[in-house]
């Protein structure tokens, strides 16, 4: 199911062509990259075999290649994958791009008071058994700080949280808050997929804080691990 929040909004005329351009340029660029190493691939295979919906998470600035990789590996194998994009104009471009790439899209925000967005992802996971992508440091950061939302999402949906890191041998860094990484054409890519994290049914506030710190450590470690694979 897709949220209908975006349907009542009007966006400038150039949003549709911009989304088309982003999709074509990004997929052309990412297609030239070569994956040279995937560590922890067994975790992904085990999840696929189990049939359980999972929450895939990574740092916001690594979302383009992680999303591209999961699109190929998850959606490409006929498994549904959900994503949330903001209600902003940029979010609309991202939503159109994601839909064209086969993602199930809900609109809203997970961070910054975005309860509706969290609840929509929760519904996908629990009621529809659809795996979802959710960035660990949220849509506005601070960068490399794991937020509570992604953990509570996995915990309340009783879904495993799968951390993923990646590095490119050569990349551009955009001027965004997270200094988004865009791999340069023909760069080598190494990915590291972490062991799925299962949370107890209830997490007290202090346990949640520890879980956030542990998720940050896991993602940082996976990035290091990926670097060593280049």
């Amino acid at each position: 199911m897709q949220s209908n929040h975006s349907e009542s909004r009007r966006y400038p005329w150039f949003v549709a062509p911009a989304a088309f351009l982003v999709r074509v340029l990004l997929s052309t660029l990412l297609r030239t990259c070569r994956v040279v190493e995937i560590s922890g691939e067994l975790h992904l295979n085990a999840l696929a075999e189990s049939g359980r919906a999972a929450v895939f998470t990574f740092w916001h600035n690594r979302s383009n290649y992680c999303g591209y990789f999961l699109r190929k590996r998850w959606i490409g194998a006929g498994r549904p994958l959900g994503i949330i994009t903001s209600l902003s104009r940029d979010g609309e471009i991202a939503a159109r791009t994601a839909r064209a790439n086969g993602f199930q899209v809900v609109r809203g925000s997970v961070g910054g008071g975005g309860l509706a967005g969290l609840k929509a992802l929760h519904r996908m996971l629990r009621r529809e058994n659809v795996s979802v992508l959710s960035v660990a440091d949220g849509s506005r950061g601070p960068v490399y700080q794991a937020q509570a939302g992604v953990i509570v999402l996995a915990q309340t949906a009783r879904a495993p949280l799968v951390p993923i890191g990646y590095v490119a041998s050569s990349c551009w860094r955009l001027g965004s808050w997270d200094r988004m990484i865009v791999p340069k054409p023909f760069s080598r890519i190494a990915l590291a997929i972490g062991e799925p994290i299962e949370y107890p049914e209830r997490l007290a506030k202090e346990e949640l804080g520890r879980a956030q710190a542990a998720l940050k450590d896991a993602l940082d470690e996976l990035t290091k691990q990926a670097k060593s694979g280049l």
Binding site: S3, V106, V110, G111, G113, G114, L115, A116, L118, K119, A120, H122, R123, R127, Q147, A148, G149, I151, V152, L153, Q155, T156, R202, L203, L208
Partner: peptide, 21 residues
């Protein structure tokens, strides 16, 4: 928001209802 999600899920489970988006 994260805490509210936990509360809403608890309400849904305990009352066996679904609160839509």
């Amino acid at each position: 928001s994260p805490w509210a999600l936990q509360v809403l899920v608890e309400i849904e489970d305990e009352l066996d209802i679904e609160i839509n988006d």
